[in-house]
Each structure stands twice: as C-alpha cells, then as structure tokens.
Amino acid sequence: MAAKPAHGQARAPINKTCKIFIGGKFPRTESGRYYLFSNNSESAPYTANICRSSRKDFRNAVVAARAAQNGWATASAYLRGQILYRIAEILEGRREQFASELKLQGASTRQANSEVDASIDRLVYFAGWSDKYQQIFSTVNPVSSSHFNFSVLEPSGVVAVLSPECDPMQFGLLALVSNIAPVIVGGNTCVLLAEETHPLTAISLAEVLQASDVPGGVVNILTGSKSELVDFFASHKDVNCIVHSEANNANSTRIQQLASENLKRVVQRPVAQWHGETMQNPYLIKDTQEVKTTWHPIGS
C-alpha cells in the first residue's frame, strides 16, 4: 500500500512490502496477519501493512538465533567489530531513506537527521568495544593455590529484546540500534521485537544488517504486538536472556515471573533518553554476558 499518487502525477512510486527478518531472510509472518501503520498525515498520507508476527514466527527466529550463536560467538572480536562498523557504513549510505522513514514515524526533519547521526555514531561506538570490553572486564584472580585462575566474559547466548517505546524524543532507530549493538558485539545473537509504532526503521535496519556481512540469524527482527508476544519472549526456554525497558509495570512483573521458569537473565534497561551519553558504556555489554572462571594448574 502506499503513499498515494497525487492526481495527475505521471509516475506512481513503488512502495516496499514490509517483511520480518529471520535467519538472514525476509519472510512474511507465517500467520498472514498484519496491522496498519499510518503516518497520520492528511497532507501526505502514508500507510503500510506491517507483519503482525505470531508466536511461531518468534519460535522460528529463536531457532535461527540459536543456530547462529556459536559461530558468531567464536568469530574473532576483530571481525565482530568490523561487521558492526560495516553496519554503520551502510547506514550512513542510506541516511536519506532512514531520515524519511523517521519522519513518517513522527520526527521533524531536524529530529530525524539527528537521530540518524546518533544511531550511526552509536554503532561506531560499540564496534570499537568489540575487542576491548573483554580487557576491561576480564580478571586474573590471584588464588592462593598453585593455579592460574582467570575470569572472562562469555555471551549469554540467545537474547530476546523488546524494543523500548519509552522515550518520546526518539522515533524508532536509535533505541533499536542502542539495544542491538551491545548485545551482538558481545557474541550474543538476538530476536528483537520492534516498537509497534516505529516499524519502518526496524525493517529497513534489517536490510542494512543483511547488507553488512552480519551472518544470518545473528539479528532477527519481528514486528507486531508486544502485548501479544511478550509472554513468549519471556518464557521461551531456549532464550538465555531478555532485555526490556518496561518500567516496573505489569509487563515487567510478568516478564520476570515467566523468565524464572528457566532462570532466564532479565535485563531491565533504564527508561532513558537514548540520545544521552549515559546510554553509551561498556556495562551495557556486560549486562548480557556470563562470567566464566577457569582454574588451570601451574606445574611441570
């Protein structure tokens, strides 16, 4: 569907079919359902049929994320950094597209440009951490026995991310990038549910990811209804960690209750201004990591 052609205009624009992103491919939801996105503009109305993903789409996405996880985690830190940087490069090249989608999602021109800038910069920021966070957080532990003892971070595994909708000053891209980057830079794979009100940038970001050497399944993006899917995100037993920004409401309670079923890690991101510098720190990477401690004997 589409921006409608004005009467008398010579050429009707071709509009993109909005799909979801699973295992590096762009299927439509298996459920065949949709919801209508609209920019609520009378002067330049735009609507799109957005996939309303089902629990089965989520299940498939978790399978894809699990399949990709070991390979992604064992890729070199250098390579992961390069790939994150590549995402930034591709995004930079498509900034006009993202700016216009952000405007369809409610941003002013200034806000849209600023959000694209911030999103690219954030990707670069986390790309740079790929081969450094381990050096910040790993420890050599001086145990009393004759052992070389060290602790390193390892990715939690498959991370489910509920994209936050809490910041009225951002329009769907920055929060998305800010949630994905620290998760994947640390070797996790993720299944992300885009904000219901900001689906366009999520879908386009998926296209950027596909064009950026990100292995299929490392990031999976669904669109749809959070209230419908939150229980499955929180309860799936092959998900190791759930990241959300629900601020102590019924959803956050429900998430922790369901997550307890498999002792899933629950990372509650602050309700935050995503533009703020405080949303850039390596502790956000550590949130979705496990600490592994190894004892190695010293002897001859």
Binding site: N141, V143, S145, H147, N149, S151, T293, T294, W295, P297
Partner: peptide
Amino acid sequence: WANTFNKFDPTSP
C-alpha cells in the same frame, strides 16, 4: 576446573 576440581578462593568468581 582443569586438572583439578572443587577449588575455591575468595578472589575467584
């Protein structure tokens, strides 16, 4: 634990 087991130390997470 490599070539050992059930070792504990306050410095070791």
